[in-house]
Design a protein around this nucleic acid. Sequence first.
DNA 1: GTCACTCTATGACTCTTAGTCAGTATACGC
DNA 2: GCGTATACTGACTAAGAGTCATAGAGTGAC
Lengths: 228, 228
Amino acid sequence: MTRGVSCMTQSGNSNGQLRGTASRRERERAQRRDDILRAAREVFFQRGFHAVTVDDIAVAAEVGKGTVYLYFNTKETILAHLLLEGLDRLVADLKIAYAFDEAWDAHTRLHRGAIAYLKFFQNNPEYYRLIMAFDRGQFQAAIDPAVYQEVLTRSLDGIEWLERAVKQAQVEGLITIENPREAAGVLWAGLNGVLVLLSHPLRAEIVATDLDSLYGTMTEVLISGLGK
Amino acid sequence: MTRGVSCMTQSGNSNGQLRGTASRRERERAQRRDDILRAAREVFFQRGFHAVTVDDIAVAAEVGKGTVYLYFNTKETILAHLLLEGLDRLVADLKIAYAFDEAWDAHTRLHRGAIAYLKFFQNNPEYYRLIMAFDRGQFQAAIDPAVYQEVLTRSLDGIEWLERAVKQAQVEGLITIENPREAAGVLWAGLNGVLVLLSHPLRAEIVATDLDSLYGTMTEVLISGLGK
DNA sequence: GTCACTCTATGACTCTTAGTCAGTATACGC
DNA sequence: GCGTATACTGACTAAGAGTCATAGAGTGAC
């Protein structure tokens, strides 16, 4: 990942050409990387993380297996990069839903955010599956720490939008709990809890209520409950 | 698992002795099975599902690897049986907490149930880790369908206690939502959502609130919110 | 043009581990 | 004691993650 720039160290003449070549190389590397990531996305989304082998990815990307490892340290790291894509999409959706340049009241804003979160998971079930698969600690050991840090950063980016909405709700008196981060945590935990529960077939069977209905009820219950 | 009882078909004389031997065999088999399960519990709890090999379990149980497979079809099935143990404990705890022979009001009963759920996960973090690890679909394919069914049954057993408490709360006017299963689902999803969120180190970092505090707030918010 | 050098790509190889099975041992009924 | 059933075993197979020695293409200097 830390690309060598050794050619830059060659003595200074015809520097322009040198830079041109180097940057083309860089572009080509990025392209290859994207090819592998695209191939991985395809097969992971189709058959799930565990059913896919690194050879499958290599074949789909039309490269050798060794090449895959030239760009990604482990299978888990590839997954982590797809997760980052998913998080980017999610945060973008939340940004739009919360849209602080619009003059909505807090209730509307919280509702829009909640619905955006639900829609994201309904429209991107594959990303959701990846995020859930990623969730368990097993990966922590196998992925690049830098990537792990990235996941953290994106996630924080997401909850900050939620927190802003909560603060607005406090100002408007809709939410009476003091600590905004805690209120945001309750909202996130509650809504996410519904998704977690109903995304597992076994648990969905136990709860025996459809996602939209339970999620809607949860949204109301949380907003109403946070208002004491 | 479906033990052959062929010796029983032998002609009837000295039937008492025959049964005695057969039942001793049965007991010995059960004992061996328990040994393996105990060994698996030990190593899984210590090092986690993925870090443990079936050979590790065999060594810990002081049997050959083949013997392990004589009693359990797959590594995942062993895990599933430990999960069943955990669920049994949990349901027992909930039973005590909800204790319908005591004359508690609905609010007290719901609170006690919520706290019992929290305490279970705090006192049995290993069982919790297993339950969460089990959660993802990967296992579904690898475990015995009968065991999977058992997990479902136990879980249903657990939520039924919650549902009874919800119904009482409806009678007492504490909860105004019509569908008791939906209200129970909201409670479960919400409380479990907090556990899920805070049991993942990355997410715990994001939420930046301690478990007891967030869980307590969630309990209040849910009960209050379900009362409209 | 061509030589030296660097960067990229590769797939055969290693290593680990889940799951199998042919062979062995023990216990039992007769 | 003998034949059979049952329990046990660990060497073996299969599969897949990750490595590395080798090949080859591209580049700049002359």
